[in-house]
Structures are given as structure tokens and as C-alpha cells.
């Protein structure tokens, strides 16, 4: 086996990951900073930039891990050739690609938006709005694709359709939705449904229709996809195949749940145009690390499955 096959990351994916990371580091080094925040932390401009990069170093590592995980899953889906489960795993890989690329693109765009609002305070509102929708849309597309793929895999195992427990799932989503709505509205400081005098700079009714409800939808399909992937793994046959598949599905479930929590946290703690060094950073980082662990586990599973298909 070549080193490339063993490591499981294609040259193109590695180049893309490196270029995007370099671009982000350049953003941190070159874009305008928030001097008030820098003064508040007692940091010079260059120190502020270096601290920003250091604080985001775990995130950069997670990007590479995510790209590696995505590469392994893509390689596995290719190894399936024309088998009946191949299209579903190709879709899973595309869904994971959306989450992977979304993670890095969101961070880069948010850095750019923060720089814009640092140079022109009148742009704080629009940049917060753009960031809010970016936080929703990119993972939502990934969740939709992953959900469709898990549905296809469920259909391939026809015996599984009788084991779905929709009421329990809906109950879980209702509880999660209620908690989310409470914390979201509290964080927004909404006083009236038509006022946009809140941290999201959107009227309450628009927040509800275009952000809150789509978030709930994203998490419903994310949870359902996770549940379906779990069922698929539990009911698959073949001792070795099942073991490898369980790594992949546990990894994917961890990724989806990690991203859901990240979305939730980014929703209740919207974009700030300065460095934040408090408990919020630690909690966000924790769930990013959970997603990163998910990518590692999924990559191990995908690699084992690919060996079954290629050796």
C-alpha cells in the first residue's frame, strides 16, 4: 500500500486544507483588529494577533483532522464501486464535506466580518446578521445530505423501518427545542416581536421564521440521522464488518452532535468582533474537540471498511 493510501488523505485535500489554513492565518496577521479589546487585555497589536492565532490553534488542528476524516470517508465510498450502498456513502461523504468546509469557511468569513466591523462600527449589525445565517446554512446543508444518506441506508435494510420510534425522537426534539428557544430568546433580549433592538439585529418575527425554526429543523434531522445511523450499525451483519461500521457510525453521530451544539452555542453567543477569552471560548472549543474526535473515529471506521473492500 502506498503511503498516500495508508494515510488516506489525498494530495488535493491536503493542499486545500493547507491553503485555507494559510489564508486564515494571513487574515489574523493582516486584517484590522479591535484595538479597544487589545488594550483591555494589555496586548500590543502584534501580541493580540499572535494570541488570536494561538487561541484558534486547536481549531486549526481540528480542521486538518476533519479533512482527514472526510478523505477517509470519501475513499471508502469510492472503494464501494457500483455496489448498492455506494450512492448512500457517497452522499454521506458529501454531507461531511459540507460540515468540514463549512467549519473553516465560517471561521474565515467571520474573521473578515469582524475586521469590517472593527473599521466601521456601523457594520456591526449587518455582520452579525450574515454570521448568524452562515452559522445556520452551511451545517444545515450538511445535515440534510447526511439525513438523506442515512434514510437510503435504512431503506437498504428493510427490516429496520419497523424499529424507528418517531414519538420518542419527536419528544427529544421538542424538549431540545424548548430549551433552545428559552435560551435563545433570553440571549437575544427580545422585548417585542417587531423590534430589532437585540443582539441579532433582526426583528423577533424574522428571527423566529428564518433562524429559530430552521435551527430546530436542522437539529431534528441531525438527531434523526444520528438515530438512523445507530440503528444501521446495530442491525448490520458480519462480525468484522459490523465492528468497522460501528466506528464509522459512532464517529458520524459524534460529528453531527458536536456540530449541533456548536450551532446552538454560536446562536446564543453570536459573532463578536474581538477576541473572547472567557468560559465561552472553552465551551465552544470543547464541542469543537468533540467533533474532532468524531472525525477521528469515523476515519478509523472508514479506513477499516475500505480495507475490507480493497484488500
Amino acid at each position: 500500500m502506498t503511503i498516500r493510501k495508508t494515510v488516506g488523505i489525498s494530495s488535493i485535500t491536503l493542499i486545500i486544507a493547507t491553503v485555507l489554513t494559510a489564508f486564515y492565518v494571513l487574515e489574523e496577521l493582516l486584517l484590522p483588529i479591535n484595538h479597544v479589546s487589545a488594550s483591555g487585555y494589555g496586548l500590543s497589536a502584534i501580541d493580540y494577533r499572535l494570541v488570536s492565532i494561538l487561541v484558534n490553534l486547536p481549531l486549526i488542528i481540528i480542521w486538518f483532522v476533519a479533512f482527514w476524516g472526510y478523505s477517509q470517508l470519501k475513499a471508502y465510498s469510492k472503494s464501494l464501486g457500483n455496489s448498492r450502498e455506494a450512492p448512500a456513502y457517497r452522499s454521506l461523504a458529501i454531507g461531511i464535506a459540507w460540515l468540514t468546509y463549512g467549519l473553516i469557511i465560517k471561521t474565515m468569513v467571520e474573521r473578515l466580518l469582524a475586521a469590517l466591523s472593527n473599521t466601521n462600527p456601523a457594520l456591526v449589525g449587518p455582520t452579525t446578521i450574515i454570521s448568524s445565517y452562515l452559522n445556520l446554512i452551511l451545517p444545515l446543508i450538511g445535515f440534510i445530505i447526511i439525513f438523506a444518506a442515512s434514510k437510503t441506508l435504512m431503506r437498504l435494510q428493510s427490516s429496520l423501518t419497523k424499529t424507528i420510534k418517531p414519538l420518542q425522537l419527536m419528544g427529544l426534539c421538542l424538549v431540545a427545542g424548548a430549551i433552545y428557544n428559552f435560551t435563545y430568546i433570553r440571549a437575544a433580549g427580545l422585548h417585542s416581536i417587531s423590534s430589532h433592538n437585540n443582539i441579532y439585529n433582526l426583528p423577533g418575527w424574522l428571527l423566529l421564521i428564518s433562524l429559530i425554526l430552521p435551527y430546530l429543523y436542522a437539529w431534528l434531522i441531525g438527531l434523526t440521522a444520528s438515530y438512523q445511523l445507530g440503528l444501521i450499525s446495530l442491525h448490520s451483519s458480519g462480525i468484522l464488518y459490523k465492528k468497522a461500521l460501528s466506528y464509522l457510525t459512532i464517529g458520524l453521530i459524534t460529528i453531527v452532535i458536536g456540530f449541533m451544539f456548536n450551532q446552538y452555542l454560536s446562536a446564543i453567543w453570536p459573532l463578536k468582533n474581538h477576541l473572547v477569552l472567557n468560559y465561552q471560548l472553552i465551551i465552544i472549543l470543547l464541542f469543537r474537540i468533540i467533533s474532532g474526535i468524531g472525525f477521528i473515529i469515523a476515519a478509523i471506521g472508514a479506513n477499516k471498511l475500505r480495507m475490507i473492500e480493497e484488500l
Binding site: S83, S237, G238, L240, Y241, L305, I308
Partner: peptide
């Protein structure tokens, strides 16, 4: 082989 490799058995 199906006992060990499940749906990948025939391909294997």
C-alpha cells in the same frame, strides 16, 4: 464469509 464480512462478503 457473510458471518464475518456481512454485505461485503460476496465482493471480498
Amino acid at each position: 464469509t457473510r458471518k464475518y464480512l456481512g454485505p461485503a462478503a460476496e465482493r471480498f
